[in-house]
Amino acid sequence: MDEQQLLKDCLKGDVHAQKRLYEKYARKMFGVCLRYAGDQPMAEDFMQEGFIRVFANLKNYRMEGSFEGWIRRIMINTSLEILRKKDIFRYASPLDNDFQVSDQAEEGEDVPDTDALVRLIQAMPAGFRAVFNLYVVENCSHKEIGQMLGISEGTSKSQYARARAWLQKRLKG
């Protein structure tokens, strides 16, 4: 069954089609949610809420562009909204002018395996983790991140710099 037919069946309320759609994307979307969550149960909550929104808004998908990308955006926005409600940026402060951020890895620096890196990113404080993922993985600018999270561009830069420092400290230790 092609994706468009699957979507049409979902829109008609076919629960079997909805289950197939969920099963088709759940694993990938769990990975997306896991990047923003501190642990697996939180990621499961993000994903469950995200799929509720996917099915509630399926009528708004125009059958143009990547459906997977559309779902992914919902999962990211849902995760960020839940994190915002938890007020993860309450104590965030803008970057000091003398603190420089470098995106370049130092020559000869060991790179950890992917699983270890994912675990470290999950262990980051929520504000660091959200900004880090948006900047590094989603390629958002600090201005965009600020708008998405309701923080200043400077606070986004600060959170990213602190996330990098936090991560580097644990990678070296």
Rank of each mutant, 00 (worst) to 15 (best):
G173L: 01
D103M: 08
I74G: 04
G127R: 00
G38H: 10
R90L: 13
M63G: 05
Q100D: 09
N139H: 09
L6Q: 14
N97D: 14
M124S: 00
R129A: 01
Q122C: 13
Q100L: 11
P41K: 04
V136R: 06
G146K: 05
S158N: 09
V118Y: 10
G13K: 01
Q4H: 11
R164I: 14
N139R: 09
Y36D: 01
Y25S: 05
F99V: 13
K8N: 10
F128Q: 01
K24G: 09
I71F: 00
M124K: 01
G173A: 01
G173F: 01
P125A: 05
R72S: 11
G50K: 03
P125T: 04
L7E: 11
Q122N: 10
I121D: 02
M42E: 15
A163L: 05
E44I: 02
C140P: 12
P125G: 04
K59R: 10
M148W: 09
P41R: 03
M47Y: 04
D115H: 14
G127H: 02
Q122H: 06
Y36L: 03
L117E: 12
H16T: 14
A92R: 02
K8M: 12
R129E: 02
R27G: 10
F67S: 00
I52K: 05
F99G: 05
M148A: 09
D45K: 06
M29Q: 11
M29F: 10
A105C: 08
R27Q: 08
R84W: 08
M148E: 11
D45E: 14
R170D: 02
V101G: 06
A105K: 07
G108P: 03
D115R: 12
Y160T: 14
E68H: 12
D87W: 13
S93F: 14
D96M: 11
D9K: 11
R35F: 07
R170W: 02
S156I: 01
L21M: 14
E81W: 07
Q104D: 15
E3T: 10
E64P: 04
I74F: 04
N133Q: 10
L21R: 08
F89Y: 11
H16V: 15
L149A: 01
Y36G: 00
F132W: 12
P41G: 02
W166Y: 13
A165P: 05
Q122V: 05
G146C: 06
Y36T: 03
L6I: 04
A123L: 01
P112Y: 07
E109S: 09
A116F: 12
K12L: 10
K12C: 13
K19N: 11
K172P: 02
V137Y: 06
F46P: 00
D14M: 03
Q40R: 11
S66P: 04
V118F: 08
L117H: 06
V118G: 07
Q5E: 15
Y25I: 05
D14K: 02
R27K: 09
V15A: 12
Q100R: 09
V54D: 03
Y61R: 01
H16I: 15
M1S: 13
L167M: 06
A43Y: 00
F51D: 01
Y135H: 14
M47D: 03
M63F: 14
D113I: 07
Q168K: 12
G146L: 05
R62D: 15
E153K: 06
E81G: 14
Y25F: 15
R170N: 02
A105F: 12
A130K: 01
A165R: 07
G69Y: 01
R73E: 14
I151T: 08
G69N: 02
L34I: 09
R162P: 04
Y135G: 13
K172I: 07
R164G: 10
